[in-house]
């Protein structure tokens, strides 16, 4: 058995935490070859990950832009000889991996939360309301890993790096632009603390309260789907089944009622705090500590006292 694992890379930036967690999840499946495809990538941090036998480094603008057509063509050229092709379940892998699987004539297995054996995997279905365990009878297993539940692989190794040429560019699609907000805050899916706001926050301006508490705690900012749909927070902050799945040490939900869709994205957090003025809110049923209070009083008070 041998694993080809696609590192999550945007431009030159390696999402090391997500990649290291996927490496940890795939370690039991055999020696891991990591693909570092991007633009201006330094593959050294990937070569250092424990469990990695080799790194393949490929440069190309389309890879840096995470274009699924280009990434799929590259993966197809590398696939022969590997029994498992794996990536963290990021939006780029979710775009490319089903495409790859179809061309290999195998079924993709998305959002794996547990690797039971070389061919048997558990994944959430119905927005996390059920966990399905499936056995794949396909010759190659194409998997995306929901990384939140895995500990990251360590960085004590030193695997060799081999540089490859990019494959011919596809003209099916072209990148126009990324609209990415850069922030000094920790990244949502790897932060130790996440402070999230929901519909109860009431406006984009009031979302500054959530950001204030987050900055005081060196936390990432999250939002419920209701808050994103209402325009209080941008889409990339959405925590939930169709947004990001997080499992920080501490998750503070402010003005979030706790729809199943949202719970699916944060219920694996180690400690959950709920601040909501509605004592009947379902979020209290999963919270370790609940505070029935108006977030407009409680959040500024908490921010002040933690400074």
């Amino acid at each position: 058995m041998s694993v080809l694992l696609v590192a999550e890379i945007s431009g030159a930036n390696i999402a090391l935490d997500a990649t290291a967690k996927a490496v940890a999840a795939a370690t039991a499946l055999g020696p891991i070859t990591v693909l570092a495809a991007g633009e201006g990538v330094d593959p050294a941090p990937l070569a250092a990950l424990d469990g990695v036998a080799k790194v393949l480094h490929v440069e190309g603008a389309d890879y840096g832009h995470q274009m699924p057509e280009a990434l799929t063509d590259l993966l197809l050229s590398l696939a022969p000889g590997f029994t498992h092709i794996v990536a963290p379940a990021t939006t780029s892998a979710k775009a490319a991996f089903p495409r790859l699987a179809a061309l290999l004539d195998v079924m993709v297995i998305s959002d794996v939360v547990a690797v039971e054996s070389a061919d048997t995997f558990a994944r959430p279905i119905y927005a996390g309301n059920a966990i399905q365990t499936v056995k794949s009878n396909d010759p190659v297993k194409v998997l995306t890993i929901r990384t939140a539940g895995f500990d990251a692989a360590g960085s004590t190794g030193s695997a060799p790096v081999e540089t490859l040429d990019p494959v011919a560019a596809s003209d099916l699609a072209s990148w126009i632009e990324d609209r990415v907000v850069t922030s000094d805050r920790p990244e949502l899916t790897s932060a130790e603390v996440v402070v999230s706001g929901g519909r109860g926050v009431g406006s984009e301006e009031s979302f500054a309260l959530i950001e204030g508490l987050a900055d005081t705690m060196d936390a990432a900012v999250g939002a419920s789907r209701a808050a994103v749909d209402s325009g209080y927070a941008p889409n990339d902050k959405q925590v939930g089944q169709t947004g990001k799945v997080v499992a920080p040490d501490l998750y503070i939900a402010c003005g979030i009622s706790g729809a199943i869709q949202h719970l699916a994205g944060m219920k694996d957090s180690k400690i959950i705090v709920a601040i909501n003025k509605d004592e009947e809110a379902p979020i209290f049923q999963v919270a370790d500590f609940g505070l029935v209070a108006d977030l407009f009083d409680a959040v500024p008070e908490m921010t002040e006292k933690l400074k």
């Binding site: 945007s10 832009h65 990148w175 990324d178 609209r179 990415v180 941008p234 990339d236 990001k244």
Partner: peptide, 8 residues
């Protein structure tokens, strides 16, 4: 996308 929005 994870980082925000991408136009293609």
């Amino acid at each position: 996308v994870d980082g925000g929005l991408q136009v293609v």
